[in-house]
Design a protein around this nucleic acid. Structure first.
Lengths: 250, 250
DNA sequence: CGTGTCGTTGAATCCAGTCAAGTGTGGTGG
DNA sequence: CCACCACACTTGACTGGATTCAACGACACG
């Protein structure tokens, strides 16, 4: 996956089915020179490594070539919030607002391989590669949409619905990056605590919620393997048949 | 504020102190031609108007010149989630991922004046105006960061902390766009229901929470006017002196 | 002067958090 | 080989914060 050291041979990222982000297609001849300057190199890390740390500055941006991670923040009161889970194809480090002050932590959950870019050259990317710059903005916009969905989930769904929603999303993305066994089962490297921190639930209640989903046959998750009943999970995530809260405005 | 109809005289947006976004600085001579094509016109709307509707397509992007609004989504179960409040200087309509399918609703809370752009010409902007394109991405990235903060708040803070956090943010932004009376009081056009839907609280509990903040002298809000004790509100928003939840990971 | 909207308050219920303890697995070292 | 520890996952009992239900007051508007 990284046998070719020539800094430019990055043919992996175009394989992001979920978002279909065309940012890192195999380069054609003429483009090599600039991308070479922009790309600093590749980086592979073990599980549990902090790639970006809250409060620290970082001169780099990353693209995930392989592996899974977590983006989170620590509140002043000591509680951790997982902002989102990171999958191959995701772009990391832009969220600080193009400045280099990190407001959140990024860490690897599994071994990861990343493509490292120089933040200082970002403006050049916009000048010399408008198409890729466009794609970059596209990624940011899509991710913003995802975060909006997360906000809606945290704000308006109960524990069971949140969990169903999360497992659905995670399963979907893991499948899409080829971490399934071809039979609906996927490798699920995150812990219940991570899910809990992502969904704003306590660990205990997270556990009990998963159990409930297991008992109703909507999801099985044990030993790092997850399989779901898409139909049923979807029904749970959306549901709330009775008492549709009357719309408050107009 | 919109006496000059010549579609290009958009000297307002550069005045966004909070984000300092230089997207719409007064144009120099050479730039007129392109921005003229990109900009479709201006639009002013009354309070309570849907600018973008969930599920509808939109060929347009907007910049808010003046006025306040709300971006929200409706869940399948009938509950509304306010994603964020909209202030002058905000860019609206990008969040769908540069596609034109709207996944959320944008509506005006006060009378608004907007700068309307043609989504189809966005790619041209990247080709012909890399600097502005960069700024655009910057906005998206900053907003993504804001949403991350919101997620953390919804996930990890209780009602009082959320409310303190929200009032703090809103007050800050209203001040920064010049809606203060110079004496710490600001015009606060949103209803308690809007706050409730933004913070994932019930209307009743929202009310009681505001009351609690009022009683402790941290915030006064009545008749569309809000004034706060920044110190105290900040303390409430962060707090939780006891039982710092032990870190779960590493 | 009804009607609708927004704000306010009290009482009852319940979802989710906290506390506490127990299981199972893998790693380490005597 | 087994005691010991660390870690993730479970489960039960209790508590409490937030929701829901239900009214009522204030104000605007036709």
């Amino acid at each position: 996956m990284r046998e070719s050291h020539p800094a430019v041979h990055v043919t992996v990222c175009h394989n992001c089915p979920l978002r279909q982000l065309p940012l890192f297609l195999p380069f054609s001849e003429g483009e090599l020179s600039f991308m070479e300057r922009f790309k600093v190199g590749e980086m592979s890390v073990d599980p549990g490594v902090m790639l970006l740390e809250e409060g620290q500055g970082s001169a780099h941006l990353f693209t995930i070539l392989s592996g899974l991670g977590i983006r989170s923040t620590m509140l002043e009161n000591g509680r951790r919030q997982v902002i989102n889970f990171l999958f191959p194809g995701d772009f990391v480090g832009l969220q600080a607002g193009l400045s280099d002050k990190m407001r959140h932590t990024v860490e690897s959950t599994t071994p990861m391989v990343l493509c490292v870019f120089n933040r200082a050259n970002l403006m050049s990317l916009f000048r010399e590669e408008p198409e890729r710059a466009y794609d970059l903005t596209w990624i940011a916009a899509v991710e913003e949409h995802f975060l909006g969905e997360t906000i809606a989930t945290l704000g308006q769904r109960d524990a069971t619905q949140r969990m169903a929603w999360a497992l659905l999303r995670i399963h979907e993305r893991l499948l899409s990056v080829g971490l399934g066994d071809g039979d609906g089962r996927v490798q699920m490297p995150w812990r219940q605590q991570d899910l809990a921190d992502a969904l704003g639930l306590s660990l205990v209640h997270t556990n009990k919620t998963i159990r409930r989903l297991r008992e109703m046959g909507a999801a099985r998750w044990s030993g790092g393997t997850l399989s779901i009943d898409r139909e049923q999970l979807g029904a749970v995530a959306l549901a709330d048949p009775e008492q549709p809260r009357r719309r408050p405005l107009i």
